[in-house]
């Protein structure tokens, strides 16, 4: 009991100043700050934009504006149904980002738990989980996604399931190796020697210290998922029409490549800018968390 108390204050002290230190380092990197600002802009557009650009515009078909080029009235032009592209990009952001963030969170939770269990209990459990994972990873992800979407139809929930299945594997390995390395750290040995229960050790010691790595990976994964999602839409596995989702919009733009390139341009820009912003922030976080770069 007393020995536990002896272990905790050091950790807590570390945590308090750590946060501030991390933020300070983050702010130093120009790229990360720019990324943060871009991300905030994107978030603002996606969250506040719908107030200025009502949802009706997303589905409103205006035949006079069939494939209209960008103009003052329609900043991003109109698509093959005469719908305003700007409205669709803004509302599409909600869907695309929503799916990406949620899918990342679910794959993170699912994968981390599996990784923690594997790393902590070791032995047969570890071997079973890791070997099953290897087999699972040998099957190309496209296959799973196709199977899920094919069988159950393409909608928000099914896409989430398919994406989670594809991306959770990242976390298993990551968290497991974190658990393995951290298990050997002195204070954890001490805690264990003191008789602390496994769960407590995981939550009090290992997880807080892995959070950094997990957050960095999660951030980067959001970007990957956004891109993967658009690839799925391209293959016809994304959200069904007339959903204003960035990937689906790119798929629709494909046949108008030469006749209406603005249809390809704006959703692509949205994806690229968002993914870039996320990557910048993720990199900034990684640098901020890495003590080696303390020069």
């Amino acid at each position: 009991m007393d020995q536990n108390k002896a272990a905790s204050p050091a950790v807590q002290y570390k945590k308090a100043s750590q946060g501030k230190e991390i933020w300070r380092r983050f702010r130093k990197s120009k790229g990360a700050v720019i990324g943060m600002i871009m991300l905030l802009i994107v978030a603002a557009v996606v969250i506040i934009g719908p107030i200025f650009v009502p949802y009706e515009l997303v589905g409103k078909q205006d035949w006079a504006n069939y494939l209209a080029k960008p103009s003052l009235e329609h900043l991003f032009g109109c698509d093959g149904y005469g719908r305003d592209v700007l409205a669709r990009v803004i509302h599409g952001g909600k869907t695309s980002l929503g799916i990406a963030v949620l899918a990342t969170v679910t794959s993170c939770v699912f994968g981390s738990i599996l990784g923690a269990v594997a790393g902590f209990f070791g032995g047969k459990v570890d071997a079973l989980i890791m070997r099953s994972l290897d087999i699972f990873m040998s099957v190309p992800d496209i296959l799973f996604t196709m199977a899920v979407v094919f069988a159950l139809g393409a909608n928000f929930v099914n896409l989430m399931v398919a994406l989670t299945l594809t991306f959770f594997t990242n976390y298993v390995r990551l968290v497991r190796s974190q658990v393995l390395t951290l298990s050997e750290v002195d204070y954890v040995e001490a805690a264990r020697a003191g008789g602390a229960r496994s769960v407590r050790i995981i939550f009090e010691h290992i997880l807080p210290n892995s959070v950094g790595v997990i957050i960095v990976n999660t951030t980067l994964n959001v970007a990957k998922i956004i891109i993967y999602e658009s690839t799925l839409s391209f293959l016809g596995l994304g959200m069904p029409p007339p959903a204003p989702e960035w990937g689906a919009m790119l798929s629709e733009a494909r046949e108008f490549l030469t006749t209406a390139p603005h249809l390809l341009l704006f959703p692509s820009l949205a994806i690229v800018l968002t993914a870039c912003a996320i990557n910048l922030v993720g990199d900034g976080l990684r640098d901020a968390l890495d003590p080696h770069l303390k020069s």
């Binding site: 690839t231 790119l250 490549l257 030469t258 390809l264 692509s268 910048l280």
Partner: peptide, 22 residues
Amino acid sequence: AFLLAAVPAFVLGLVMLFVFCG
């Protein structure tokens, strides 16, 4: 590199198709 890492492969493919073939 930042920009390119954020572009989906099929968009690159489409653009290349357009530029180098068309």
